[in-house]
Amino acid sequence: MLHVLVIGAGTMGSVHAEAYKNMPGVKLVGIADLQADKAALLAAHCECRAFTSYDQALGQLGSEHIDVIDICLPTPLHKSYVLRAADDGKDVICEKPLAGSLADARLMIDYCKQKGVRLFVGQVLRFFPEYQNAKALLDRGAIGSPAVIRAARGGSYPVGWNDWYSDTSASGGVIVDALIHDFDYLRWCFGEVERVFAKSLHGRVQAQLDYALVTLRFQSGVIAHIEGTWAHEGFFMQLEMAGTSGVIDYDSSKDTPLIMRDRGQRPGSRAGVPVPESPLEPSPYARELAHFVSCIQDGSEPLVTAEDAWEALRISLAALESARTGRPVTLNDAARSTSG
């Protein structure tokens, strides 16, 4: 039985805790969050203990009764908690993006290696069946040789603790926080990226809006266009792969099995907003975490490694740099090989 402590009771913390609650071979031992009421509420729901800090949790549970630390905190807090967990000899599952800088991400990966603990990063898109199936079709030659790829992700501006998403130096904006999913997925499908060009609203508008359009050129020749938006409503993700003999496309807002529309007549309900759902049992997040857990149990390599997460971050930061300078950014192989 693996004992997991979740740090952070926000959106992702709740998703992770819920997944562990029903996962065979795992015991969710606690949830720690600075906001005691949030931790308590989530802990009550997941039938585990609530703590207001990492230290309090380790102190009260006893370090020997915790195997895995799952970090669901705002990005700037990832580093210190990953290092602490490694110091305490715990395997670590960390939400994406691993860090805000490549240097920090490298340090975290190396530190975990040194301390002999595993580090997994929640690049969850690889566990979404629609994306897995698209890759399987691609690999099977369903569209021939891939040529032009379009991906999109976004919706409304995210709401988080202390409004941390709107501090681009902390969140990296839509390019780092959201598009890192697509960058990782596309790299999984098409290999290494050669060149990145990006434009974004960051620095152009004062309003709480972010919108970015990124072009990736892969070493294989594939051209990919990725749209990231925190300027729309609701949430959607799209993928289109066009190849020499076919096209695969997916749009979560259209290809959805379930949409609920509220007439707004019940107390507290909101009218007019369609809420699409794509029920899956288990959820992609639960699939991802169960996979990480099984990797911890049998020592096997995960579908997405910490090095993959580092590469996805590298693409994200190159896109940020391109958007800032207005020039294309070439990713060189030297940086890749010396880093690995």
């Binding site: 040529a147 060009f197 434009k199 152009r204 066009a242």
Partner: peptide, 19 residues
């Protein structure tokens, strides 16, 4: 990728990519 003289940016996919 296009940059306009009023600060607007845009992308345009002009590919013959329909099979």
């Amino acid at each position: 990728s296009l940059e306009f003289d009023n600060g607007v940016f845009a992308t345009l996919d002009c590919s013959w990519s329909r099979n």
